[in-house]
Design a protein around this nucleic acid. Structure first.
Lengths: 160, 160
DNA sequence: TATTGTTATACTCTATAACTATA
DNA sequence: TATAGTTATAGAGTATAACAATA
C-alpha cells in the first residue's frame, strides 16, 4: 500500500515528466519528420504490427493510428502486407529506407538522453526504466479491471 | 556513465510513459474542464506565479501559458494581481473557488494513481518519484549548457 | 452481428509572429 | 533596446462518428 503523500509526490513528478517528454519530442523534431516517429520505432522494434496493435501500444484511437501509419506510407517508410489469416487487417512493416530512418532517429534520441544523464550511475538509469515499465503494467492492469473502455481489450503487445 | 543499452531501454519506457500520461489525462477529463488543470495544480501548490513562470514550469511557450491562464480566469478560478515591482507582469493566483476545484481535482488524480499502484511497496513509489525528479533536473541542466533556446533562461521555480 | 480499419470532421493544444506596454 | 505579456493565425495530434469490408 502506498501512502497518500507518496502518491501526491509521484503525481507531481509525472506532471513534470509530461513537460520533459514534450520538450524532448520538440528537440528531436528538427531535421526530420515528426508525426509517427514513435510508430516508426515500434515497427522497427516489433516488426509486423496491425493498426489495432499500434493503437493499443500508444493508447490512441485506431483512427489516429491509421492516419499516422498512412503518413509513414506516404513517406515510403512503411508498407502494409496482407494478412492471410484475416483479410480485414494488414501487417504494417518498415521498408528498408524506413528501417534506416528508424535506426538513425532512435540513435539520435538515445544520444540526447545519454547526454542528459551522462553523470548518472548505471544502476539508477536501469532502476528508472524498470519502475516506469512496472508503472505502465500496473496501469494497464487497472484498466482491464475497470471496463470503462470496451474498445480496448488489452490482448496484444504492450512492451513499448 | 550510462551504457547505450540502458539508455535505449529508458528511452523505450519513456515512450511508454508518454502513452500512459495521455490516457491518465483522458480519464481525468470527464466531469470537469480539461485545459489548464496542470496550471491549476501548480498555482494551488506554488501560490502566485507569473505567466513566464508557468511557461517555464511546463516547458511551453509564454503564449500558450497566457492562453491557459486566461481560460482559468474565464472560469472564475484564477485572477491576476498587479506586481508593484514590475508593472509589466502580474501574479496569477487562484480564487477560493479555484482552490476548491484544484483540491478536488488533485485528489481525484491521486486516487486514480493510488488505485493503479495499490500493490506497490511504498519504497518503490518513492524511488520512482525521486528518479523522475532527478531526470527532470538533469534535463534542465543540459538545456542550460546548450543555449539553443535563448527564450528559456531557467531561472525560476522548477519543482512541479 | 461483431470486428478491423478508413475517412471526414471537430476539437484541443502548441508554436510562430506581430503587437503593446513597461524597464 | 530588452523584457513581459497578449492576440491572431497556423499547424500537429487526437477523438467522435459514419462508413466499408470481412469474420
Amino acid at each position: 500500500m502506498v501512502s497518500q503523500e507518496s502518491c501526491g509526490e509521484l503525481l507531481l513528478q509525472l506532471s513534470s515528466t509530461d513537460a520533459l517528454i514534450r520538450t524532448f519530442k520538440r528537440e528531436l523534431r528538427p531535421g526530420g519528420p515528426r508525426g509517427g516517429f514513435a510508430l516508426l520505432a515500434a515497427l522497427h522494434r516489433c516488426g509486423g504490427l496491425r493498426v489495432g496493435d499500434l493503437a493499443e501500444l500508444f493508447e490512441i484511437d485506431v483512427s489516429a493510428a491509421s492516419r499516422q501509419l498512412a503518413d509513414l506510407e506516404e513517406r515510403g517508410w512503411a508498407e502494409r502486407v496482407p494478412n492471410p489469416q484475416d483479410r480485414r487487417s494488414w501487417h504494417a512493416r518498415l521498408t528498408p529506407e524506413g528501417e534506416r530512418v528508424a535506426r538513425e532517429r532512435t540513435a539520435r534520441a538515445r544520444d540526447l538522453l545519454a547526454e542528459a544523464i551522462a553523470d548518472w550511475p548505471e544502476e539508477d538509469a536501469a532502476a528508472l526504466a524498470d519502475l516506469l515499465g512496472r508503472l505502465r503494467t500496473s496501469f494497464d492492469a487497472r484498466r482491464v479491471r475497470v471496463p470503462d473502455h470496451p474498445s480496448r481489450t488489452a490482448s496484444g503487445a504492450k512492451g513499448l
